[in-house]
């Protein structure tokens, strides 16, 4: 009955230029499904920051967007280096990004705080050397 609509994406980690393509697509797909514009904006911003993170830190990964009647769930998974200290990573301004990433307009330690800010629920599961899974949810009122 309550099978979600699923959108699945592979995020290419080798090319920063294309980072964000999946999020732009999600925005368009959610519009077609008839989701309200303010919900779409929050989902696509959170996913965009997550996608950028996967590209700059983890050499890409996968993104799944599940549309339920009462919420939109975003699951981002990578097999990157993992996050040693999640509390520290959550602090605004804390960043381990390289200078070349900063010159592209990201890497100022705003990614995870932005993702938390725009979603109703965010859970990070990470193991150093194995990878990271970020689950986010935006409620549909």
């Amino acid at each position: 009955m309550n099978e979600p609509i699923n959108f699945h994406f592979k995020v290419d980690g080798s090319n920063f230029i294309s980072a964000g393509e999946a999020s732009v697509n999600v925005k368009k797909l959610l519009r077609q499904v008839g989701i309200a514009p303010d919900i779409i904006k929050r989902v696509s911003i959170a996913m965009y920051e997550g996608e950028i993170n996967m590209v700059i830190h983890a050499n890409g990964g996968t993104a799944d967007v599940n549309v339920y009647p009462d919420k939109i769930q975003i699951i981002l998974e990578d097999v990157g280096p993992g996050i040693p200290d999640i509390d520290q990573a959550m602090q605004e301004g804390f960043s381990t990004a390289q200078d070349n990433v900063r010159s592209l307009g990201f890497g100022a330690g705003m990614g995870l705080p932005n993702m938390k800010k725009y979603t109703d629920m965010m859970k990070i599961e990470s193991e150093v050397g194995k990878g990271t899974k970020v689950t986010m949810e935006v409620n549909i009122p």
Binding site: I17, I45, F106
Partner: peptide, 12 residues
């Protein structure tokens, strides 16, 4: 860079 355009698109 292209992220500028994508960011602007995200924010309508």
């Amino acid at each position: 860079n292209p992220q500028v355009i994508r960011t602007a698109e995200m924010m309508d």
